[in-house]
């Protein structure tokens, strides 16, 4: 269970993962470096969500403007 928590933590924080010390110790180098792909996809979708939040905040401000009248 603890391992699983650590695993998901690392998936969430790609930048906080251990530096590449050696081939066997490198978490991101495991299983043919598939976690690099996971990190890249996470970043991609994270940015898309961030953009949606940005748009919603813009809409919120507009709604406030409309409701003031």
């Amino acid at each position: 269970m603890k391992n699983r928590i650590y695993t998901s933590l690392f998936l969430l924080l790609p930048f906080a993962a251990f530096a590449q010390e050696s081939q066997s110790n490198d978490y991101f180098g495991n299983i043919g470096k598939i976690y690099v792909v996971a990190a890249v996809m996470l970043l991609l979708f994270g940015t898309m969500i961030a953009f949606m939040i940005y748009l919603e905040r813009k809409l919120d401000r507009l709604e406030e403007l409309m409701n003031d009248d």
Partner: peptide, 12 residues
């Protein structure tokens, strides 16, 4: 997104 994903890819 392109430059940051590129950086992650480059790291490994």
């Amino acid at each position: 997104v392109g430059i940051t994903t590129g950086a992650i890819w480059a790291k490994h």
